[in-house]
């Protein structure tokens, strides 16, 4: 959670660039999606996945303390963005920490009182790796038109009745609306997942122009 005095506000799906400067002047910069909903708040929520061989994430997750200052640039991006007037039906597909910008969209949908039909297909390694699980369960329980479909790719608890494989064409066929309903689709996650999901959606007949992607690269950093 970052407090940003003078924050001009953001749109759901936008990111910030975080720049770290070492004592010797060496700089490293990474982009992080904003997970909090747009609003008047000057506090931003970023969710950072720690990569042990990363340059930036070990610092942000391990060494950064409350009160430390960071150099930020943002809000950034006008392409991978959802606003309430864009409507739906809305299909969100996330792999791992790719949930972050999609979470901002879901939180905006919630705070704006939108009931646009929305499905989130969310791939995680295991039940414990699902980010925002409690919050997602709580929103689903309000029955406001959000459905969340999980798939667990590595480990699943006994009695798990959901999907337990990587997202594939069959899964997308079952979860996505028929192409004729022209769902607006946002896909975010590691590059290989995003590429295979986007290709499968196009093969199923969805309009490429209705599919927006945000690739994280192979790792992120």
């Amino acid at each position: 959670m970052l407090s940003v005095p003078g924050w001009p506000g953001h749109r759901a799906g936008q990111h910030v660039d975080v720049r770290l400067t070492a004592d010797d002047g060496y700089q490293a910069e990474r982009s992080y999606s904003i997970a909090s909903a747009p609003g008047a708040d000057e506090r931003l929520a970023l969710t950072v996945e720690r990569l042990d061989d990363g340059e930036v994430s070990p610092y942000l997750t391990g060494e950064l303390r409350a009160g430390d200052q960071l150099e930020l640039r943002g809000p950034i991006g006008g392409y991978f963005v959802w606003d309430v007037p864009l409507g739906g039906p809305l299909l969100l597909v996330a792999g791992g920490s790719g949930i972050c910008p999609l979470m901002a969209m879901l939180r905006l949908r919630q705070s704006a009182g939108s009931t646009v039909p929305t499905r989130l297909l969310y791939s995680s390694r295991s039940l414990e790796d699902i980010i925002y699980r409690t919050e997602l369960d709580a929103v689903v329980a309000t029955q406001n038109g959000l459905e969340v479909i999980h798939t667990l790719t590595r480990a699943h608890p006994e009695g798990w009745s959901g999907y337990q494989r990587r997202i594939d064409t069959e899964m997308l066929r079952a979860v996505a609306w028929p192409p004729g309903e022209r769902p607006l689709i946002f896909v975010c996650g590691p590059t290989p997942l995003v590429e295979s999901v986007a290709d499968a959606l196009v093969n199923l007949g969805h309009e490429p122009a209705r599919i927006k992607t945000e690739r994280f690269g192979p790792t992120g950093g």
Partner: peptide, 13 residues
């Protein structure tokens, strides 16, 4: 190269 590919969106900053 394919794994390293990003979206134009990432150059927004």
């Amino acid at each position: 190269d394919q794994e390293l590919r990003l979206d134009g969106n990432a150059a927004a900053g």
